[in-house]
Simulated assay, not measured.
Amino acid sequence: MSDSNTTEFTNPSTFILLGIPGLEVAHVWISIPFCAMYVIVILGNFTILFIVKREPSLHEPMYYFLCMLAVTDLVLSTSTIPKILAIFWFNSREIDFSDCLTQMYFVHCFSAIESGIFVAMAVDRYIAICHPLRYSTILTNHMVIKIGLAIVLRGSMLALPYPLLARRLPYCKTNIIPNTHCEHMRVVKLACADISVSSYYGLFLLLCRIGLDVFFIVVSYTQILRVIFSMPTKDARLKTFGTCGSHLCVILAFYIPNLFSSLTTRFGHNLPLHFHIFIASVYLFVPPMLNPIIYGVRTKQIRDRLLQILTHKGTKVFSWCSRSET
Rank of each mutant, 00 (worst) to 15 (best):
Q308H: 10
S220R: 03
Y38R: 05
A166G: 13
V119S: 09
Y221M: 06
I147F: 00
L165V: 13
T233S: 15
I32C: 11
I279Y: 02
T80R: 03
D124Q: 07
E24R: 01
T264H: 09
P178E: 05
F15K: 05
L164Y: 05
T174Q: 03
I228K: 03
V107M: 12
R226V: 06
L225R: 13
F97W: 06
P257D: 04
Y162C: 09
R303N: 12
I51G: 01
A191K: 00
C244N: 06
T240G: 08
F118I: 10
L101D: 01
S262M: 05
G202E: 01
I147V: 15
M104G: 05
I294C: 06
H269S: 10
S220A: 14
S13H: 08
S92F: 10
S230Y: 04
L43F: 13
I177Q: 00
A236P: 00
C208P: 00
I279R: 02
G268N: 03
C321N: 12
N179Y: 03
T78Y: 10
I151Y: 00
V119L: 11
V28C: 10
F50K: 13
T265W: 08
L160H: 01
F278R: 12
L101F: 01
H181Y: 14
S319L: 14
L190R: 04
V123F: 14
C192T: 03
S115Q: 06
M185G: 02
C192V: 06
F34H: 07
I294M: 10
R186C: 04
P33R: 09
I127F: 09
V282D: 00
C67I: 05
K53I: 10
D99C: 11
N45T: 12
H276K: 02
T140D: 02
G148S: 11
I87S: 02
T47M: 11
L49F: 08
